[in-house]
C-alpha cells in the first residue's frame, strides 16, 4: 500500500503529471503576460503544451559528435531531479509527500542537478556554443547558488529547523517570514537568485540566444528538447513553490465566507504570483554580461543576504 501511494505520489500528484501540467500552464501564462507587456497579443496560454507536444512527436536529430549516453541521459536526469523536489515541497498540505530529517539540504542539492545536467549536456554536445554555454553556466552557478543558500539559511536560523514542514508550521503560527523586516533582504536576495537559477533576463547569460544560439541546449532537438522544456517548466514551479514555503507561509487552507478553500489553491496562487514577479523582472531589463552578473551576485545580492543573516542572529 505504501509503495502504491509512493508511485502515485511520484507519477501523478504531486509528481510528474501534476507538476508538468502546472509547469506548462504557468510558463504559458508567463509567455502570454510577456506578450501583453510588450504590447502584443502573445501566444495562447496553452501554447507551451502545443510546443512540447509537437517537439515530442518530432524526429530526434543527434549530431555525430554528441553520440554519448551522457547527452541522452542529461534531460531525463534533470526532469527526474526536478520532479523529486516536487515530492519534497509542501503542495496540498504543510506536510510534503516525502519527509526527511533535514529535507532542505536535500532540496538544495537536488535543485542543482538540472543545472549540472545542462552543463553536461552542453559539454558533451561537441558544439562550441554548447561548451561556451556550459562554461557560462558553471560561472553563473557559483554566483547565484551562494546567495540562494545564504537566503535559505536565514529562514532556517530564524525558525531553528532544517525541515521544511517545521518552517511552514512556524509561519502558520507566527506569520509569514517575508513580513519580518529582518528577513525581507533575504527574501529579495532569494528572488534574485531564483531569477538566475531559472535563467531569466537579466541572468539568461548561459542561453543568450543572440550570442551563443541556445547555449547548452543548442544541439538538442525533438523529444530530448521537449524533455528539457518540461524539466525547465517543472523546475520553475518547484523553485516558486520552495520560495512560497520558505517566505510566503507555504500552502495553507482558508475559510472565506464559510467556503473552505483547500491549501492547494493557496499553493497555486502563491506560485503564480512568484512566476509573474519573475516575468515582470525579465521584461524590464537587458541581459548582463557574465562578469557583470557575477559582480552583482557577489556584491549586492550576497550583501543583502548576509545583512539579513546578521540581523536574524543579532537582533532578537
Amino acid at each position: 500500500m505504501e509503495v502504491l501511494s509512493f508511485i502515485l505520489g511520484s507519477l501523478v500528484f504531486p509528481g510528474l503529471l501534476f507538476a508538468s501540467l502546472i509547469g506548462l500552464l504557468y510558463i504559458g501564462i508567463d509567455r502570454k503576460v510577456t506578450g501583453h507587456m510588450q504590447n502584443r497579443i502573445g501566444p495562447p496560454i496553452w501554447q507551451e503544451f502545443l510546443d512540447v507536444g509537437k517537439l515530442l512527436s518530432k524526429e530526434d536529430i543527434t549530431p555525430g559528435a554528441a553520440q554519448s549516453p551522457i547527452f541522452t541521459a542529461a534531460p531525463l536526469v534533470a526532469l527526474g531531479a526536478a520532479v523529486t523536489v516536487m515530492l519534497l515541497i509542501p503542495v496540498s498540505s504543510p506536510q510534503p509527500t516525502l519527509t526527511m530529517v533535514a529535507d532542505l539540504i536535500v532540496i538544495i542539492y537536488l535543485l542543482n542537478i538540472p543545472a549540472i545536467c545542462m552543463m553536461l549536456g552542453g559539454y558533451s554536445s561537441g558544439s562550441p556554443f554548447g561548451a561556451t554555454g556550459a562554461g557560462r553556466h558553471v560561472a553563473q552557478l557559483f554566483g547565484y547558488e551562494f546567495v540562494f543558500i545564504i537566503a535559505i539559511l536565514v529562514a532556517v536560523v530564524r525558525v531553528g529547523s532544517l525541515g521544511l514542514p517545521t518552517i511552514v508550521n512556524y509561519q502558520a503560527q507566527q506569520g509569514w517570514l517575508i513580513l519580518d523586516w529582518r528577513l525581507l533582504p533575504a527574501a529579495i536576495a532569494a528572488l534574485v537568485a531564483i531569477q538566475g537559477k531559472l535563467l531569466r533576463v537579466p541572468f539568461d547569460i548561459p542561453e543568450a540566444e543572440s550570442e551563443i544560439v541556445h547555449g547548452s541546449l543548442t544541439e538538442y532537438s525533438g523529444p530530448k528538447l521537449a524533455i528539457w522544456r518540461l524539466a525547465y517548466d517543472v523546475e520553475t514551479i518547484v523553485v516558486a513553490g520552495l520560495f512560497a514555503a520558505l517566505f510566503l507561509g507555504g500552502p495553507t487552507a482558508y475559510v472565506i465566507g464559510g467556503v473552505q478553500i483547500p491549501s492547494i489553491v493557496d499553493f497555486l496562487i502563491k506560485t503564480l504570483a512568484i512566476v509573474l514577479l519573475t516575468t515582470t523582472l525579465r521584461n524590464i531589463m537587458a541581459r548582463l554580461r557574465i562578469d557583470q552578473a557575477l559582480k552583482f551576485y557577489w556584491t549586492s545580492a550576497t550583501l543583502l543576504a548576509i545583512i539579513s543573516l546578521v540581523l536574524v542572529l543579532v537582533v532578537p
Binding site: V33, G35, H36, M37, N39, R40, I41, T280, I284
Partner: peptide, 21 residues
C-alpha cells in the same frame, strides 16, 4: 528602479498593437 517598468505595466492594460492576423 528600471525606467521601463511603468511603460511595461501600462502595456498590460493597453490594447495590443498587433492583431490576430
Amino acid at each position: 528602479m528600471p525606467r521601463i517598468l511603468p511603460q511595461v505595466l501600462r502595456n498590460l492594460l493597453r490594447k495590443p498593437a498587433t492583431v490576430k492576423y
